[in-house]
Structure formats: structure tokens, C-alpha cells
Design a binder for these strands. Sequence first.
DNA 1: TCGATTTTGAACCGTACGTTACAAAACAAG
DNA 2: CTTGTTTTGTAACGTACGGTTCAAAATCGA
Lengths: 191, 191
Amino acid sequence: MARPRKFDEERAVGAALEAFRTAGYEATSTQDLCDATGLGRSSIYNTFKSKHDLFRRVLLRYMEEKTAFQRELFDSDRPVREKVLVLLEIVVEEECEGDGRGCLVVNTAVELARRDAEVAHDLRRDYRSRLDLLTGAFEAAQRGGEIDPAKDATALAHFVIAAIGGMRVSASNGVGRRALQGVAEATVAAI
Amino acid sequence: MARPRKFDEERAVGAALEAFRTAGYEATSTQDLCDATGLGRSSIYNTFKSKHDLFRRVLLRYMEEKTAFQRELFDSDRPVREKVLVLLEIVVEEECEGDGRGCLVVNTAVELARRDAEVAHDLRRDYRSRLDLLTGAFEAAQRGGEIDPAKDATALAHFVIAAIGGMRVSASNGVGRRALQGVAEATVAAI
DNA sequence: TCGATTTTGAACCGTACGTTACAAAACAAG
DNA sequence: CTTGTTTTGTAACGTACGGTTCAAAATCGA
């Protein structure tokens, strides 16, 4: 019993995601968000309350998608080292072949997390879920004899996550595909 | 034969560094820089030309200091794994015990490098010098029998640098000292 | 003491920011 | 066709931005 929306809310979130990935939070203006989504200012503020709230919504969706993909990857029954290698090679691909916009989680952690408590909280939750996923996979691999049971599965999970973040930082520093692939291989070899 | 400066230029660069480390490039305003340095607007613009130029100057000094320290560390004649471990433990210390402002190089790589060609160039140069330093150390260690000569010294160097960046990203994500220390140890063990 | 030269503080530039106000427009229900 | 409700476009809000201007203040050599 009211005027219906002319746009798809999820589609707008996706467009905003690309804008925020391109320039980060601070350097993305509300006008940029209007241009990216095709919406007017009032539609954005009416729907998402504020730039900050829209950003959190965008970040949450990005994290959900990434985590869902990782969960899918680790649900397969390949050897765990192969799973990790695939994960790391996808990172290489995203950083080298992709649009060069980087990962919103890493970008946000560095740009915003230290001075935005809400965003920091969102990032912590996401880190936790990735950590749990990897830890579980390593524990299962230990039970299956793939990985030395004397190792600390949680420590391995922290190690792999750090490797991903480090590869993304290195890519921002201009490191090329071949070197990143080397880092990926060294990481898997260390598990 | 003219009015002398009332401030120490290097001291101002140092103060600006703390401001930029606290909030990043975009979120640090010229007013913030005035407050941090104690200078007036015109003094800043008269001395450093622009916010962007001041930032590059700050970044260059930060990189010089960091690199000088690393060079000093690796000039000692301890075992190379010990040197790397010290390096990584300093990172842990900075991230956990420090003021929580992070590393300007990592912050800048993520926030600025993808859309600022000049800054990207500065970062590449710095990465190269760190890479050369570590590569040289690993090659020497291979000659000395500390490290398997079959390994690729340059790849090891990329790997260690990535580990540092990754630990800093993880710290931004709320990872604590103990887990970071585990990452450091796993990294050294993988060399 | 006196110009010459530079630094300094304050006021100011135009622009762009995030956000809000508001009225016209578009629908659904009666 | 109304009435009620929501969305939408436009315009504006006050503020803060990065940067400039300019005259007064400060120091030097002579």
C-alpha cells in the first residue's frame, strides 16, 4: 500500500561494494556511491541510514560470500594441503589477474579497524569463523594422518590466514604473480 | 639575512608521521597536521608544498629508519634464523605492546598504493631494498651451511616479508600476542 | 638603524563533504 | 477516485576540506 522500490537492494549493495573496494571507505564519497549504484542520495539514505551503515552492510555481505566459498572448498574431501593450496592460489589469481581492487577485509582491517569499534567487531567475528573453519580442517587432517598430530592446529590456521593477508599486502607493494606463487607454495610446505 | 625558522623541520616530519600513522592519509586533515606539528598552515605549506608531498617525505623517512634498523640487525653475525626471529618478534611487540598505530608501510600499501602512482613507486623501491637485504642474508646462510642450498633464497625473502605483512593485518583483525608469536615461530621453522 | 628577506598567523578561497528537508510522484487498498 | 504511505529527485544544510593570500613580525647583513 505504498510506492514500491524501483531498484534491487542487494544489487545496490553489490555496486557499493565495488566502489568501496576501489577507493576504500574514506575516499569513497556519497556521490561516488550514487554513481556506482545509480540511486539518488535520498534513496541511499532512506534505505541504508548512513554511509557508515551502508559500508558495514557491504562488508558483512562480502565476508559472508567469502566465508561461504571457503566453507564449500573445505567441505570437499581432497587432501587438506591441496585445499589450502587452492585457497592461496585463488588469492594469487585475485590479486594478479583481477581488477586490482584488493580484498575488502584486508583493506578495511588496515584502514578502519583501529579507529572504528563497530567495524573492528565485525572483522573479529569474521576472523574467528575463518579460524574455526581452518582449525577444524587441520584437526581432521591430523586424525586422518595427513598432518603431524604434534602440531597445533589452531596455530596452523593463524599461520595460513596470516599468509593470505601477507600475500595481499605484498601484492599492493607490487610483487608479481611468480613471487606470490612461491609464497603460497612455501606456506603449504610449512603446514 | 632573513627571518629564521622557529621549528625543527625533522621534528615536524616526525610529528606528522605519528598523525598519519594514527588515521591514515585520507583521514588526516591539514588541521590535524597543524595540531600534531604545532606549526601553522602557512609554515607547513611553505616548507612541504602540499599534504601529499609531506606525506611522501614522512613515508620516505619512515622507510629509511626501518630499513636502517633491519640492515643493522642483519649485519650482526648471529645465525640467520635467529635474526629473522628477532625481526618477527619486534613486529609482534610493535603490534601488541605499541601504541596500536600499525606500520605506515603496510597501511600505505593497502590504503594508497593502488591509486597513487608516486607512492606506489616509493613502496616498490622500499620493498626491493628489504628483499635484497633478506635475499643476501639467506644466500650467505646457504654458503655457511645454515640453510639448504637447494632452496630459493629470493623466494624465502618474499616469504618472510609476506609473513610480516600478514602478521600486521592479523593484528588489525584483533589477533593477540600469543597467536602472532606462533605465526612468527612457524615462519622461522619454514625457512 | 635600516632595508632586504623570510617566516608566521589569520583570514579567506572555492569546493566538496555527509546529511537532511521537502514536495512531487508512484503505487496499493478502500 | 480517493486516501494513505512510501520512494524519489532536487535542493539545500552547515561544516570541513586542501590550499592561498597577505600584511605584520622577526631576523639578518650593512
